[in-house]
């Protein structure tokens, strides 16, 4: 268990991180917290939104504030798997193949418009996310730790996209939508000009080691029997819904674990050493919606319905 003192210092630092993120990503405290929670839960984040609403800003703000190095891949329809993972090239001087690491070898990877790339390239990234390593020519290359992917995708009504299959969607612990800022936030944004300069002058508030520590803390957050009951009831409700035909598939056990992991990280962000139903209630839509219906927009009505029918224990 985390001692009281350590926990209070944790809380202070996490608050600091959240404040700084809030300064840059204006008017989106919920989304910022969810992004951070996804990172602390050891998962990856899917951001579903229109271009220009601040997805890149969020990713860069996270990287800058947490002191992580980051890269960005723009997924296009001609992207090759080796463009993600890296490639072995024959070095004439050394008379041998040498591995040139791809953009995936970083702590925070922004995979922009992931659904624009063909499935093979998507697959390369998703494999790396799952295995935490890249294998090229039979040699495994471990990825950085922590390794956090923020993938963005356009709403799927647009043309020329390769929708992620359900199995791949399951690999993202949560899916969020930034949406248009409200009027006061937008005004702040417009008054202060471009955020780019702010991002470049950003000071790191935490370190990679600290994030690993917080991840460990998040794992230790207590989940009591009533909370597990509630989780099970939620999972069951999605499965009943699927059998009624309201959605494609119910939540998998992995999704259940993701839900609990995210709820734990959420509890940690709020300075608690236990999960309360409120945590599950809050994170449930971002965990479940994209899994149930393939996209946040279509899934949110379903998750709302479930939350309004499953009783809290």
């Amino acid at each position: 268990m985390i001692s009281q003192q350590r926990q209070s210092s944790n809380d202070r630092q996490i608050d600091e991180v959240l404040t700084q993120l809030g300064d840059i990503v204006v008017g989106k405290p919920m989304q910022v917290k969810l992004a951070l929670a996804a990172l602390l839960a050891g998962g990856h984040l899917l951001v579903e939104d229109l271009p220009g609403v601040g997805k890149t800003t969020l990713a860069r703000a996270l990287a800058g504030t947490l002191g992580l190095d980051w890269t960005r891949i723009q997924f296009t329809s001609d992207l090759l798997p080796s463009d993600v993972t890296g490639i072995s090239i024959y070095d004439i001087n050394k008379q041998q193949f040498s591995f040139h690491p791809g953009p995936v070898f970083t702590s925070l990877l922004l995979a922009d418009e992931i659904n624009r790339a063909p499935p093979k390239a998507q697959g390369a990234l998703l494999e790396a996310m799952e295995e935490k390593q890249v294998t090229v020519d039979g040699i495994s290359h471990p990825l950085a730790n922590p390794f956090f992917v923020v993938a963005t995708q356009n709403p799927q009504e647009q043309l020329g996209v390769y929708p992620l299959p359900e199995s791949q969607l399951d690999r993202f612990i949560a899916c969020i939508e930034l949406g248009y800022p409200d009027s006061s936030a937008e005004r702040t944004l417009l008054e202060n000009g471009d955020r780019r300069q702010m991002l470049e002058s950003l000071d790191a508030v935490a370190t990679a080691e600290q994030i690993l520590y917080w991840q460990a803390c998040a794992k230790q957050v207590f989940t009591s029997a009533p909370v597990i009951d509630y989780t099970q009831n939620l999972l069951l409700a999605t499965r009943n819904m699927a059998s009624d035909g309201a959605c494609n598939i119910g939540l998998s056990p992995r999704a259940g674990l993701s839900l609990l992991a995210l709820a734990k990280a959420w509890a940690l962000l709020h300075g608690r050493d236990m999960v309360i139903p409120e945590d599950l209630h809050t994170v449930f839509p971002s965990v479940a919606a994209h899994r149930l219906a393939g996209s946040l927009r279509q899934g949110t009505p379903l998750t709302d319905e479930i939350l309004n029918t499953v009783s809290v224990s």
Partner: peptide, 9 residues
């Protein structure tokens, strides 16, 4: 309290 309502809310 609706039975689907969390204590917090």
């Amino acid at each position: 309290q609706g039975n689907y309502e969390t204590p917090t809310s």
